[in-house]
Amino acid sequence: MSVPRLLLCGFGSFPEAPLNPSAAVVASLARDAWAPPGVEVDFLTLPVQWKGSVETILRQLQARPAEAVLVVGVAVEAEAFRIEHRGRNRAARERPDHAGRVWEQAFIDGAGAEELAATAPCAAMLAAIAAQGLPAVRSDDAGDYLCNFTLYRLLATGAAARVGFLHVPQARECAEGAAFSVDQIRQAVCAAATAFAGVLSRPAAEPHRA
Score class of each variant (00 low, 15 high):
37 P>M: 09
39 V>A: 06
39 V>P: 02
40 E>Q: 12
40 E>G: 08
40 E>S: 11
42 D>L: 09
43 F>M: 05
43 F>E: 03
45 T>S: 13
48 V>M: 08
52 G>R: 04
54 V>Q: 01
55 E>C: 08
55 E>H: 12
55 E>P: 05
57 I>M: 00
58 L>S: 08
59 R>C: 11
59 R>P: 05
60 Q>M: 10
60 Q>E: 14
61 L>E: 02
62 Q>R: 14
64 R>I: 09
65 P>R: 07
65 P>L: 07
65 P>F: 07
66 A>H: 04
66 A>K: 00
67 E>P: 03
68 A>F: 04
70 L>F: 08
70 L>V: 08
71 V>W: 00
71 V>S: 06
75 A>P: 02
76 V>R: 09
78 A>P: 07
78 A>H: 10
84 E>Q: 13
84 E>K: 08
85 H>A: 14
85 H>V: 11
88 R>D: 14
89 N>S: 13
91 A>L: 04
91 A>K: 00
91 A>P: 02
91 A>N: 04
93 R>S: 10
93 R>Y: 08
96 P>S: 15
96 P>H: 12
99 A>M: 14
100 G>M: 14
101 R>H: 14
102 V>T: 15
104 E>R: 14
104 E>W: 11
105 Q>D: 12
105 Q>K: 15
107 F>E: 11
109 D>M: 14
109 D>W: 13
110 G>M: 08
110 G>F: 08
111 A>Q: 15
111 A>N: 15
111 A>I: 10
111 A>K: 15
112 G>K: 02
113 A>P: 06
116 L>S: 04
117 A>G: 13
119 T>F: 04
119 T>Y: 04
120 A>R: 01
121 P>R: 05
121 P>Q: 08
122 C>N: 14
123 A>I: 10
124 A>F: 09
124 A>C: 12
124 A>V: 11
124 A>D: 14
125 M>Y: 05
127 A>H: 12
129 I>N: 03
129 I>G: 05
130 A>V: 13
131 A>L: 12
132 Q>P: 12
132 Q>V: 12
133 G>R: 11
134 L>V: 11
135 P>A: 10
135 P>M: 13
136 A>K: 06
136 A>N: 10
136 A>H: 07
138 R>I: 12
139 S>L: 06
139 S>F: 04
139 S>R: 04
140 D>K: 11
140 D>L: 13
140 D>V: 10
141 D>A: 05
143 G>L: 07
146 L>W: 02
146 L>H: 00
146 L>P: 03
147 C>D: 00
151 L>R: 00
151 L>K: 03
151 L>T: 03
152 Y>A: 00
152 Y>G: 02
152 Y>T: 01
153 R>V: 04
153 R>E: 06
154 L>V: 04
154 L>M: 06
156 A>W: 00
156 A>L: 06
157 T>R: 11
157 T>C: 09
159 A>T: 01
160 A>G: 05
161 A>C: 07
161 A>E: 09
162 R>G: 03
164 G>A: 08
165 F>G: 01
166 L>V: 06
169 P>A: 07
171 A>S: 13
171 A>T: 06
172 R>E: 11
173 E>I: 07
174 C>Y: 08
174 C>R: 07
174 C>M: 12
175 A>K: 11
